[in-house]
Amino acid sequence: MDIRIQGSGPTAPFLSARGLFETEHDLTLPVYVQLREDPDERTWAAHYDDRHVLNISRQAASSAMARELALHEFAHMARHEQEHPSHVQSTEEVLYLALAGKSVERRKLSHCYQIANHMKDIYADDITLSVGPGEKLLSFLESGLAAAVANRSETPTRPGLERLSPSADPEITAVNAAFALALAERHDLVDDDHRLYDLAHAAAMDAPDVEFAGFKRRFRELAREPDSSTYRQVLVDATRSYAGGPGPAAD
Score class of each variant (00 low, 15 high):
4 R>F: 08
4 R>I: 14
4 R>P: 08
14 F>L: 06
20 L>C: 11
21 F>T: 13
24 E>L: 10
27 L>R: 03
27 L>V: 14
28 T>M: 02
28 T>F: 05
31 V>M: 02
35 L>D: 06
36 R>E: 06
36 R>F: 04
38 D>Y: 08
43 T>R: 02
46 A>W: 07
48 Y>A: 14
61 A>G: 08
61 A>H: 06
62 S>G: 13
63 S>D: 01
63 S>R: 04
65 M>F: 06
66 A>I: 11
70 A>H: 08
75 A>Y: 03
76 H>N: 03
76 H>P: 07
81 E>N: 01
82 Q>D: 02
82 Q>C: 07
83 E>F: 06
85 P>L: 00
88 V>W: 02
89 Q>R: 11
91 T>D: 01
94 V>D: 00
96 Y>H: 13
97 L>A: 15
99 L>Y: 02
99 L>N: 00
103 S>K: 07
107 R>S: 12
114 Q>L: 15
115 I>P: 01
116 A>W: 03
121 D>K: 14
126 D>C: 08
137 L>R: 11
137 L>I: 14
139 S>H: 10
140 F>Y: 12
142 E>R: 11
146 A>Q: 13
155 T>G: 01
156 P>K: 00
160 G>A: 03
161 L>E: 06
169 D>P: 06
173 T>Q: 05
178 A>M: 05
178 A>H: 15
179 F>I: 07
182 A>E: 00
183 L>Q: 09
184 A>P: 10
188 D>L: 15
192 D>G: 10
192 D>L: 11
198 D>W: 08
201 H>V: 15
215 F>V: 06
216 K>S: 07
221 E>C: 12
221 E>S: 09
222 L>V: 15
228 S>E: 03
228 S>N: 05
230 T>L: 01
232 R>H: 08
233 Q>M: 10
235 L>R: 01
236 V>R: 03
237 D>H: 08
237 D>S: 12
240 R>S: 06
240 R>N: 04
240 R>I: 07
241 S>Q: 12
241 S>M: 09
249 A>P: 06
250 A>Y: 14
